[in-house]
């Protein structure tokens, strides 16, 4: 596999863009990460993105932060991880520092709130788009369909913490695929 070489500045600026447009939780930025990291930069293979997202959800911390560190580490080691991490954090830190000064004016500004209503609506569409694109790629067998539906239900009804859903998915993958490969059962 030939990955394009990433400069530290490149990592910083790509994740700066991702950090600046991550609203409403980490998964809304999945289409953006996919576009920047897979399509534009060619740093990561399409299917690896989902592994990175799953790993990012299984370790402590925000998804955007964890995937920035993962990708930075893969491309340029610790220096790359720090560059990507600084990139994804900077917009958030700078904007909050500004807002902390103008706290009350900002919050009661009707124009800000209206524009944000539009952004909130868009976030629904962005996360749904991520689910659609990832699902089309991954759900290719009856097993995969069943696994994703079970995960969907467990998560929507808050029946299990997300980490446990992912761990169970891994365990059932090991059981299902080793049995199939071993010819023990179809």
């Amino acid at each position: 596999m030939q990955q394009k070489r990433a400069s530290l500045w490149n990592l910083f600026s790509v994740f700066f863009r991702i950090g600046a447009f991550t609203f409403g939780g980490g998964l809304a930025m999945l289409p953006l990460i996919e576009r920047e990291v897979v399509e534009v930069q060619g740093w990561v293979e399409q299917e690896e993105i989902l592994d990175i997202v799953a790993l990012s959800q299984s370790v402590p911390g925000a998804i955007a932060v964890n995937s920035a560190i993962f990708i930075g580490l893969r491309l340029r080691g610790l220096a790359g991880a720090l560059a990507a991490l600084l990139g994804v954090m900077t917009p958030s830190v700078v904007i909050i520092l500004i807002i902390a000064h103008f706290f009350t004016q900002f919050q009661s500004n009707p124009y800000v709130m209206r524009a944000f209503s539009g952004v909130k609506a868009a976030v629904i569409g962005l996360v749904a788009a991520a689910a659609w694109r990832v699902g089309r790629q991954v759900v290719t067998s009856p097993y995969a369909l069943a696994a994703s539906l079970v995960a969907l239900v467990l998560s929507v009804f808050d029946l299990l913490p997300i980490v446990w859903i992912i761990i169970l998915g891994g365990i059932s993958g090991i059981i299902y695929f080793s049995r199939r490969e071993g010819g023990v059962a179809k």
Binding site: G25, L50, Q57, V134, V138, A147, I165, F177
Partner: peptide, 29 residues
């Protein structure tokens, strides 16, 4: 091999979790 099986199991689950996030965000909004 076992790690590959594990990720073959995790990928559809991760996709389902993204779909769940879409549902939950839509409900909250």
């Amino acid at each position: 091999r076992l790690v590959q099986f594990m990720f073959a199991g995790i990928r559809p689950v991760a996709a389902g979790l993204v779909a769940a996030a879409a549902v939950l965000i839509a409900l909250a909004t």
